[in-house]
């Protein structure tokens, strides 16, 4: 059973641990990289939503990439960006309707969530289990129950 990345805003306290974890996990030459996940105001009191890539089935970012730098990893299901192929045209950033392809201006890199290759740091360090990476079926049962 494949793992799925599950976001539960109800449990999010907006502590931004996920941001920190993500930055560390994606460091560039020993420097922290830009985070791929942002807990944002959900529009209601005490409601935080960690916004990150949804790994869309028919992804606008993949369609927008004219050099085929964005490809789905069949093991994790994540759409990964090959930095060596990327020509930095910003098409994916402009195309994503969720705003989840980003420009790391400090390192001049286009970035997006890659699920850390199958062990997402954000989920690992989330103190409230608002972010989880686990088999999907469990979640299904939970919802059903």
């Amino acid at each position: 059973m494949k793992n799925r990345f599950i976001v539960n805003p109800v449990l999010c306290t907006g502590c931004r641990t996920c941001e920190l974890a993500c930055s560390f996990a994606h460091s560039v030459d020993g420097q922290m990289g830009r985070s791929r996940i942002y807990p944002l105001d959900g529009g209601m009191t005490d409601l935080w939503v960690p916004v990150t890539c949804l790994q869309c089935e028919e992804a606008a970012c993949v369609k927008s990439c004219l050099v085929n730098a964005l490809r789905r990893n069949p093991d994790t299901g994540a759409i990964e960006l090959n930095e060596d192929i990327c020509v930095k045209c910003m098409a994916c950033i402009a195309a994503c309707p969720f705003g989840c392809a980003l420009h790391d201006t400090q390192h001049d890199l286009i970035i997006k969530c890659d699920l850390c290759g199958g062990d997402p740091a954000c989920a690992k360090f989330c103190p409230t289990k608002a972010l989880e990476y686990k088999p999907f079926e469990t979640k299904k049962k939970k919802l059903a129950g």
Binding site: N8, V10, L40, D41, G42, G43, L47, P97, C100
Partner: peptide
Amino acid sequence: HRKETSLTMGRIA
């Protein structure tokens, strides 16, 4: 877009 996403997901939550 991210702000929009958070608001949409907030409503669902």
